[in-house]
Design a protein around this nucleic acid. Structure first.
Length: 241
RNA sequence: AAGCUGCUCC
């Protein structure tokens, strides 16, 4: 419990110290303690320490292993530009009979999408399908963001439709990606219209997305439109920063 | 209880 709270507060040095003390006193950390520590280290970009800790669990306490530890490490390795290591742990996870779930595969799809490795993304999507794992909203948001960065707006709309068809409610990340695609395509007005439409449909309004459009309009000298958005922000209760 | 999705500005 103490470890969990310290992890939550983000003090990994103290958490590691306490873990050492536990081990010295023959109180072995349990699965929960290890998971908290590893995920905290990954969040704080201490991926090397996280991997060392995962290796310790692999050596002495394989019964404590779970998907959370692996997903945290796989995600952090991708994010720090170490895809080979990430895949190594993915394969290790599978070897040990820990079934990757949608969250694990999402982390990998996102990792490959950042590297522009489309065929690997497809491989993981096929795997998801083969294992009868259902994509979640994050899966679609990852794909949507990937397409929007490349201004593939028709792909974006196909994904947007898919989100609704699968019964998910688009969120602020969904909205951000679509508007991003329009901004990049210099279709700022369409982006603004889309944002207004999504807000009208109940999507949580979002400061970042407004900022993106306001910045774009400001760059283009379209200040009337920029101020119009600022007014809308106020009227829907999103505070400007 | 813990793991996935934001090249807005700074």
């Amino acid at each position: 419990t103490l470890l969990a709270k310290i992890c939550e507060l983000g003090n990994f040095n103290l958490a590691l110290l306490i873990m050492d003390e536990m081990i010295q006193n023959n109180v072995l950390p349990d699965s929960y303690a290890y998971t908290c520590l590893i995920s905290m280290l990954c969040r704080m970009e201490k991926v090397v320490t996280a991997v060392i800790l995962l290796e310790r669990v692999l050596e002495r306490d394989t019964s404590s292993l779970n998907q959370f530890m692996y997903t945290s490490v796989i995600n952090a390795l991708f994010k720090t530009g170490q895809p080979k290591a990430a895949i190594y742990y993915f394969e290790d996870m599978v070897k040990r009979g820990l079934n990757p779930d949608t969250v694990t595969l999402n982390a990998i799809i996102d990792g490959f999408s950042r590297l522009g490795q489309v065929s690997k993304m497809d491989d993981i999507l096929s795997l998801m399908n083969d294992k009868s794992l259902l994509p979640n909203l994050a899966t679609y948001n990852i794909l949507l963001h990937f397409q929007s960065k490349q201004q593939n707006m028709s792909e974006c709309f196909a994904l947007y439709d898919m989100i609704a068809r699968k019964g998910f409610v688009p969120d602020k990340l969904t909205c951000h990606s679509i508007v991003l695609g329009f901004c990049k395509s210099s279709m700022t007005d369409v982006g603004a219209k889309f944002l207004k439409m999504m807000i009208g449909e109940g999507t949580e309004a979002d400061q970042l997305t407004f900022n993106m459009l306001i910045t774009k309009y400001s760059e283009r000298g379209e200040l009337v439109k920029a101020f119009d958005l600022l007014n809308i922000m106020n009227s829907v209760g999103v505070s400007p920063n």
